Amino acid sequence: GIPATNLSRVAGLEKQLAIELKVKQGAENMIQTYSNGSTKDRKLLLTAQQMLQDSKTKIDIIRMQLRRALQ
């Protein structure tokens, strides 16, 4: 079985993952909103794209940590 310490770690990672998935969803929504907007929305679009990139990276890292914890 999986050690108890790993189980609480997994629960924490799953919570983090859920949050990051919401951030990713929000960033994707912002990108959709701003991509057909005016030029003043360009900065917001770039910010949203950066957020999305960061979020995807975090999600990958969390998933990797989850896999390790579940081994």
Rank of each mutant, 00 (worst) to 15 (best):
A11S: 05
G12S: 13
S35F: 11
L7V: 13
Q71V: 06
M51C: 07
N36L: 05
D60R: 14
A11G: 03
L70F: 04
L52E: 01
T5P: 10
R42I: 10
G1C: 15
V10Q: 02
K56N: 14
E28P: 00
Q16A: 14
M51Y: 03
A69L: 15
T47V: 09
K43D: 12
L44R: 06
I61V: 08
Q49H: 06
I59D: 00
K15Y: 06
L21R: 03
G26N: 14
N36P: 04
G12V: 15
D60W: 12
Q50P: 00
T47N: 14
Q53D: 08
A27E: 01
T39L: 08
Q49F: 10
D41F: 04
K24A: 08
Q53W: 04
Q53S: 09
D41Y: 04
E14S: 13
L21V: 04
A48Y: 08
E28F: 05
A11V: 11
K15V: 04
I61Q: 10
K43C: 13
N6L: 13
A11P: 04
Q65E: 14
M30I: 05
I59A: 02
L70R: 07
T57L: 09
T33P: 01
I62H: 01
I59G: 00
L44E: 05
S55E: 00
R63E: 09
L21H: 02
L52R: 02
L44T: 03
L17D: 00
Q49T: 06
Q49V: 12
K43A: 13
L45N: 01
R9C: 15
N36Y: 13
T39Y: 08
L52W: 06
K22Q: 08
I31H: 00
T39C: 13
S35E: 08
K15S: 04
I59P: 00
G26T: 10
T39V: 06
A18L: 09
K43R: 08
N6E: 11
A48Q: 01
I19L: 12
A11N: 07
N36F: 10
K58W: 02
V23N: 15
A4P: 06
I61L: 09
A27R: 03
A27M: 08
M51H: 04
L21G: 01
N29P: 00
R9S: 13
K43E: 13
R67K: 12
D54V: 15
A11E: 15
Q16S: 07
V10P: 02
D60V: 12
S38G: 10
A18T: 06
L17K: 00
T33V: 11
K58S: 03
D60P: 01
Q25C: 12
L46R: 08
S38H: 07
N6M: 12
K43F: 10
Q16G: 01
A4Q: 14
R67V: 11
I19M: 11
R42Q: 14
L21K: 03
L66M: 03
R67I: 10
T47Q: 14
L70P: 02
N29T: 08
T33F: 09
K40S: 12
L46K: 06
M30K: 05
